[in-house]
Amino acid sequence: MENFSLESISSQKGKVAIVTGANNGIGFETALALAKKKATVILACRSLAKAQKAMSEILPKVPDADLEILLVDLMSLESVRAFAKEFSKKYDRLDFLIANAGIMMPPFQITKDGFESQFGVNFLAHFVLVKRLFPILKTTLGSRVVMLSSLAHKNAKIDFTNLNAEKNYSTWKVYGQSKLACLIFAYELQRRIEDNGLKLKSLAAHPGFSSTNLGHLLPSVGAKLFAPFASFIGQDAKAGALPILQAALDPSANGGEYFGPSGFKEIKGLPKVVSSSSRSHDLLVASKLWTAAEEMTHEKFEI
């Protein structure tokens, strides 16, 4: 696979993309790039004000951008279902479903459905979103689902006895578990797509270390002190979005591939296909996780 370049990607006019969490950071840069390629971009955000601000920042850069705001709160499965229903009424195709939105290392909290928030938002809400939109995805020629994982997946494992932090809550461990779950789901979805002879693709990507993560990783004072060095350690949101965009747009990308930065330890650099932990390829864990997600969300996801 040659080095990916957005400039080499042809117009995506007529195609429809959903980007969750499109109002800032990597989600914003992903939405902006897709708008530049003439795709219709659904800004799937929780806050109307923040979504409108993102739209107002995209339009001067892409005056003819085809954008629509559809609100979704990933802390609520009712909201996810309502979003999918509204989208399905308005559109008869979905070419790119970018599961970008997520939360990172918050204090312990639960979603409206009683899930630990990181597992609930990062994984379970997107599981339901993909399931609810799958009828449109599988009838759209060449459609792709892109799940966002993280470098944090590499030291993580799925603890089926503690999915909701029933025993204890470690912010980092729970975050890593949620991002490992997203990656396992992407792989398992591709296997089930192939087993059923469907033509769409499921892929995954991670942004490396982005300076936009600082506010989550460090106390506010520490983040301010560390910010000047962020560009040396990681990369900005625009660069962090490139692996996601390659997964979505690269004609040579294959279902089941995982994209990330090509630099040292995948912290930054041009995007490429990267490897993932052995745990992410465990077929028994994948099957068990799929079943657990169905049971927790009360959503039977049959391909």
Rank of each mutant, 00 (worst) to 15 (best):
E7F: 09
K15I: 00
A17K: 07
I18R: 08
V19E: 06
N23Q: 06
N23K: 06
N24T: 15
F28K: 12
L32T: 03
A33I: 03
K36Q: 12
K38P: 00
K38C: 07
A44V: 10
A44Y: 09
R46K: 13
R46H: 08
L48K: 15
Q52V: 01
E57M: 15
P60C: 09
P63N: 09
S76Q: 03
R81N: 13
K89A: 12
Y91H: 15
I103S: 11
M105S: 12
P107F: 13
P107L: 14
F108D: 09
K112N: 14
F115V: 08
N122C: 05
N122H: 07
F127H: 01
K131F: 00
L141M: 02
M147A: 14
L151P: 00
A152D: 03
H153I: 02
N155Y: 03
A156N: 05
E166V: 04
E166A: 13
K167C: 11
Y169I: 05
Y169M: 07
T171Q: 15
Y175D: 00
Q177I: 02
K179Y: 01
C182E: 13
L183W: 07
F185Y: 14
E188L: 05
R192F: 05
G197H: 09
L198Y: 12
K199N: 14
S202V: 02
H206S: 09
H206P: 05
H206C: 10
S210W: 02
S211C: 05
L214T: 01
L217N: 09
L218K: 08
P219Y: 01
V221G: 01
G222I: 02
G222M: 10
A223E: 10
P228Y: 07
D236S: 10
K238H: 11
L242C: 05
L242F: 05
P243G: 04
P243R: 04
L245S: 08
L245Q: 09
D250A: 14
K265P: 00
E266M: 13
P271R: 10
V274Y: 03
A286T: 09
L289N: 11
A292W: 10
T297W: 08
E299Y: 13
F301P: 08
I303F: 15
